[in-house]
Amino acid sequence: MSATSPESLSKRSFVYRQLAGASFRDIAGGAMATGVAEGNNNRSQAEQSALLDLSVLPRTGFRGLTAAAHLQAAGLPIPARPNQASVTGSGELVLRLSQKEFWLLGALSDSGAGVDALNQRGLPAADCYSLYCQDSHAWLALTGAHLPATLAKVCGVDLREASFPLGSIAQTSVARVNVVIVHHQLAGVPCFSILCDSAAAEYLWESLLDAMGEFGGEVIGSNALL
């Protein structure tokens, strides 16, 4: 098996240069870091404090009055209210960002196959528009036991469990970049997925690592969660 490198593929993560030296595997035509060159590539690091780049993992979005029906027809669970997320049986996340806007984030376990399946379905005849969140946003996952305290250094929203339980979404500003934060679990580890402006991904990556420092946070590859 030849080694995958980010530059051997035409789809590239917005932060692949931050992962120099990592080992990669091809996910949906992009290189996903499976293990980083230095640091702990294990679950305990993820449980303590870790940063993972999921940008190449497929995701899509739909907006419009019939968007909910479109997802429902595909068998996806629709969160009851805006700023809530639900998890599908195969691990995708369905985000509801407003009354009529939904994003679907692919699952690590099947390399985002569920997203591709949704994208294959024909759109409703009217009032359902696909969104460009695969390209407009980078997907950074912050994991571990110190999520609220870490985010409190860069974000003005109370993200403690009591006010931001599992399945919550916050559309807010992190280190002065607009983001969508989703509280979920990644392979059973507490996780905040942060979807940010892809052009600001390198900036946010560095800002998050800086905030994680006091909690022993490190970059991990996806194998740490296997």
Partner: peptide, 11 residues
């Protein structure tokens, strides 16, 4: 109305 109480700097 959509996101709940937030710092005014988000607006």
């Amino acid at each position: 109305p959509l996101n709940g109480p937030r710092n005014i700097s988000e607006f």
